[in-house]
Amino acid sequence: MKIIYHCYGGSHSSVTAAGIHLGLLPTGRVPTAEMLWGLPFFDQQVAKDHGNIKFMGVDEFNNQIYVLGRHNTAKLIENVLPGVAALFGIQGKELFMVDVMPYVNWRMMLGGYISRRLGWVRIGRPIVTRGTQYSFWSLTTLVQRVKMLAANS
């Protein structure tokens, strides 16, 4: 099964959720800033990368984990990708889309905008990192739920 975590830019919340899913981050405590910065693609993707599905790794149940930046098209992208995939014989079980955007707080939006859109990394990155740490527990809960749903299907 392929699991795609998607958010606006595919560089903070979805990467963190994918990192938790793959066990790249500790589950018992909030990760430090350095741990987050060590994730592949964390605070890396810019506008021209949006729309490209990036491979993050393979989890313990042999699911491939991907991240996707898709702007403000949450419902649209969840219609179009499974819809097109179904035409080519890829059924519901093989593709699982997870919207991470509900767990994004204002710090992540502000820091992400400053760091990614404006390019002021030294100002934006600490803000978005603080925001990610703030949302860490809800992201962990989301990933637990996704793992359970993936195991059941």
Partner: peptide, 8 residues
Amino acid sequence: EKEVVPKA
């Protein structure tokens, strides 16, 4: 989103 969605 005429670029992001086709790319995806």
